[in-house]
Design a protein around this nucleic acid. Structure first.
Lengths: 128, 128
DNA sequence: GTAACACTTAACATGATGGTTAACTATATC
DNA sequence: GATATAGTTAACCATCATGTTAAGTGTTAC
């Protein structure tokens, strides 16, 4: 493992999530997960022009999801290791908080069901 | 457990990743992970107008990340359980393929280092 | 009833996206 | 040198995103 301790900025996440917010780009990533490929190869499954693909690749590159290299007249793209990590981390972090939150909600509802008293609007009470 | 077996469409992922591709919206999600909140409360940390927040909330709602309800004159937002799951699944799936890919690459490089023979470009035989 | 509050909707400006075709660069082939 | 191939860049267009301010909708408070 390389263990590059890069700090993930908000802009990194913008670029990452933004890059993944497009079906064509996710398709490209899926193809690259199978293996390195050239632009024309990557373009094959889609019914859009090569320049369009070229720009999608640029978006993926800017988000550090892919790395590109030149060999002869072919440009090949490959996935960058650990590039999705920040996105995955953010998601898993929030999924955990989520889960906790719902545990607490369950708890809360259970308590309410038992006590069966005042209508709740925690707006003022617990957010400080 | 609810276990809603909803098929995740490509558009779902577009909406999900798209919604998360904005720092303000991620900030809102982070706040909501702490607890349910009203629009004004959610707006507080940001220096943008309330209408802007209102629209961010609409984006999050469309992506099913949050659910909204009305109580009196307050609209409260809360996180939707499992809503991030599809995004997380997609990411983890591709992270795995990724990892495999790099294992194979390592292997490949190791073999190359040992054999030290023909330059590789499976597309067509060429020289540089 | 009227005023304040908590929003949302409307109308608008502006910049980013995503697509196109045409032209350009660079490499390979004849 | 001429031509084909692989891809990018340029110019353009339509649509969407994000922000603004101003006006509108309900709801609470006086």
């Amino acid at each position: 493992m390389l263990s590059v301790t890069t700090e993930t900025t908000s802009e990194d996440l913008d670029l990452l999530f933004g890059a993944l917010a497009d079906a064509t780009r996710r398709g490209i990533v899926a193809q690259l997960a199978i293996g390195e490929a050239t632009v024309t190869q990557l373009a094959a499954p889609f019914s859009i022009s090569l320049p369009a693909i070229s720009r999608h690749l640029k978006v993926l590159e800017r988000a550090s999801i892919i790395t590109r290299s030149k060999q002869g007249r072919w440009r090949s793209a490959r996935l960058t290791p650990t590039s999705l990590a920040s996105a995955a981390t953010w998601l898993s972090l929030h999924e955990h908080l989520w889960a906790e939150r719902f545990d607490r909600l369950d708890d809360h509802l259970a308590r309410l069901a038992t006590e069966k008293s005042t209508p709740q609007t925690e707006t003022e009470t617990e957010r400080g």
